[in-house]
Structures are given as structure tokens and as C-alpha cells.
Amino acid sequence: MLSFQRQLAKTAGQDAWMAVVLSGMIIHLMIWMIYSMLNKDKGDLISIHQQTFGKWPGNLLSTIYILFMLLQTITVLRAYIEIVQVWMFPVLKTWPLALVLLLIVYYVVSSGFRVVTGVCFLAVVVPSYLILTFFVPIEFSNFRNLLPVFDHSVTQMALSVKTASLSFSGFELLLFYYPFIKQPEKSQKWAHLGNLLTTLLYLLVVVVTLAFFDQEYLKRVIWPTLMMWKIIELPFVERFEIIGVTSWAIVMMPIICLMVWSASRGIKKMYKIKQRKSLVFLLFICFVICSLLSEREIIQQFNSWITNIGFFIFLYIPFLFVCYHIRFKLKGKGQ
């Protein structure tokens, strides 16, 4: 969210906003697929895997998925700490901050799913004032930058849809917390609505970014959103990016909590290990790897590595969808 515009603009230029819209639609489709699986299964990813591929192969796939989720958590956490180090405290060591942030994660996740959802809700509501900040740079923007539309080839668009869709990741966690929703079938419209809002928000951010920066300049800027916040000046406060970075601690919390919760829950379901124990273990791994990633280039490498794997998830969900339904049909005939 703080830097995705740059990758998008590198491939699709001024048409990057279309990539956001397109990937938003793709995500809608995926949410529909996930719901169609879950509504039949009434379980979660682990039971779907077991149903489709059998017990052991299914569990193996789930384990791989959980491992990947853990790596994603680390990326999110490390990326945030890097931002803090670059923008606020250059001499801050990685591990004390990681330790404190993971302590919050432990506190949240160990308090149960109710608190996790609470954090998800409040972490959206409380920093929602950040949306207003995207209207301020408009004063210095030139919306001519968005024209002409449709000036990029299909491959360029596809590439940027790939990058854009990755910033939507998080919806697939539905595969884990579905059984915890009170009336899961009715929640589908909320999932779609949420996705729509996310798409709109990303669209706003991308459009403002494209108008605010010249494309050549945008390619040089690593965190365009923070650069945009820099221009905000209020009568009582200047340099909004510091407040932005601070608020981001709240914004990135729910995704980490939700992922760690899902991972520990998955482990419990598969291996019957108490969630509290696996939680400590998972957080410890997060902490160690996070502290080991020290340089910008290594973090970058790690990031791109994760994004590339992340792309497989997007291919994997339709694949699982097809497999699951074939399996379901076969079973139906068998009986």
C-alpha cells in the first residue's frame, strides 16, 4: 500500500489504475470461488484439502500453505520496520521493535478470535482519517498525467495486474476463519463489499499518485505514498509522513494478527498442537528471521521472492476450486 504504485507504474504507466480495477474484479471472482467451496464444505482450507487430495497429501499442502503465510507475515513486519528505520529512526535496531510488535501480536492472538476481529475492525476504523490525506496532494497534481488511457499493450497490462493483485492478498485468509463467522453464508456479500471498498481505496491512491508524480520521477521514488504525505501541511502540524508511518503500525497489525492466528489454528487442526504453544513457536520464527534480514537489498530480494510465490496462490485458488468440484461430483456419483 505504501509502495505498490511504483511497481504498477513501472509496467503500465498511466494506465496503472486500470490494473487495480481489473485485479479487483479478479479478486471478486476468487472470493466467489472460495465461498462456493466453503459453503459446500462448511469447513476450512484444511478440511477442503483433506477432502480433495486425501488426508496426508492434503495436510502436506496445508502445511506448505501455512509456511508461506508465515513468510508473508515476516515480509509485512520487516517491510514496516524498514520504513520506520528509513523514515524515523535510522539507528533503531530491528529486533527490539520486532519483539515489541510481536508481543502485541501475541497479546491479540492469544486473546481469541473475538479480539482478532476486533483489532481488524478498529485498525480499519481508527486510521481511516488517512483517506482524507490522499485528497491534499491533489493541489499539486496534474490529472493530465493519467491521459491517454489504454495506451499499453495487453502483456504490460497483464504484468501490472499481477503486481496489483498481490496488494489485495489477505482475502484468502477467509479459508481459515470461515467456520468462525456466525452466519457464514450470509457473509459473502460483506466479503464482496469489503473487496469493493479496498479496490476503491487503491484506485484513489493510484490515481492521486499518478497525477502527483511525473512518471520518470515516480520510478525513482521507493515509497510514493509517504512522499505524498510529505507535502501535507496543516496549521498545527507539518510533515505528515511521520504521522502516516506511525499510523501504519495500526494499519498493518490486523493482517499480521490474522495470518498468525490462521497459521496457529491450521496447525492445531492438523497436528492437534495447542494453539497457544504453536503461537509462541510461530512468533519466535518470525522474530528470528525478521532480525536476520538486515540490509535493504536482502529485504528486497526476500520481498520479490515472496511476491513470486504469492502469485502461485492466485493460480492455486482456481486450481483448487476445479479440483474440489470435480472431486465433489465424483463422490456424488459414487454414492
Binding site: 497479546y107 504521522i243 506511525t246 495500526i250
Partner: peptide, 20 residues
């Protein structure tokens, strides 16, 4: 300890506590 970031972290603890 950490300026505004510290306040945000303290706020997160408070928020979680209140949710719990």
C-alpha cells in the same frame, strides 16, 4: 522511547486490552 511510534504501540496495547 520511540516518539510517536511508541504512542502508537501503547495505543495498540490499550486497544487490545479494551477489546479483551
Amino acid at each position: 522511547l520511540w516518539g510517536l511510534l511508541g504512542i502508537a504501540i501503547a495505543f495498540l496495547f490499550l486497544m487490545t486490552h479494551l477489546l479483551k
